[in-house]
């Protein structure tokens, strides 16, 4: 039996014996898809990363939710194909804000042509915690135009509402 003082953090996490941390596995799956822009199935990713197919699907779905991958179901193939979603470098300047029951997380990413803003909608449930519902990317160069667009739509919506209310009064 091993002595207590011989057990390392790596042993506890199972990183030794040629095994990887969860993060390393995710990175491996990510890089495998990057190397295969024509798309990979969960089974292919599982084989490449030497993990179970179910685990591979789990990681791929998470990556899709984070918009690092996207998936598509092709007519003649039973499984989903997963594709790289552009080159994304690590996030920075990340901040979340709860607006009533909606949670928004905004972060910056270094895209190919320059910084991009990711806006994630997240949902919190008591028993499942916080999960990504969906997200969009806006190039930094378009950010000002995008917020003006939002303002414009807000004005239009308010005008629409006013007209609707006036119609009701008549």
């Amino acid at each position: 039996m091993v002595n207590l003082n011989e057990i390392s953090a790596s042993d506890l996490l199972g990183i030794n014996n040629n095994k990887r941390s969860e993060r390393d596995t995710r990175i491996l799956v990510l890089s495998y898809i990057r190397q295969n822009p024509d798309g990979v199935t969960a089974k292919m990713a599982a084989e490449a990363a030497n993990i179970g197919e179910r685990r591979a699907r789990e990681i791929l779905n998470e990556l899709c939710q984070a918009r690092e991958r996207y998936s598509r179901k092709l007519p003649n193939i039973q499984s989903y194909l997963f594709y790289p979603n552009g080159r994304l470098i690590h996030k920075y300047l990340q901040k979340s804000r709860d607006l009533g029951s909606q949670i928004f997380r905004i972060s910056f990413h270094e895209g190919r042509k320059g910084p991009r803003v990711q806006i994630q909608e997240r949902k919190f449930t008591l028993l499942e915690g916080e999960k990504v519902e969906g997200s969009i990317f806006v190039d930094y160069s378009n950010l000002e135009a995008f917020t003006s667009f939002l303002d414009e739509m807000l004005v239009r919506f308010n005008q629409f509402n006013e007209k609707k209310n006036r119609g009701r009064k008549k």
């Binding site: 003082n5 953090a9 506890l12 996490l13 941390s21 984070a66 690590h90 972060s107 916080e130």
Partner: peptide
Amino acid sequence: AISHQMNIATATLVQSKYDFGDT
């Protein structure tokens, strides 16, 4: 010693999730 290693292991995994963008 084992308490210390459990702490390091947990903190490492927390850090990797944080780096990955999780809250």
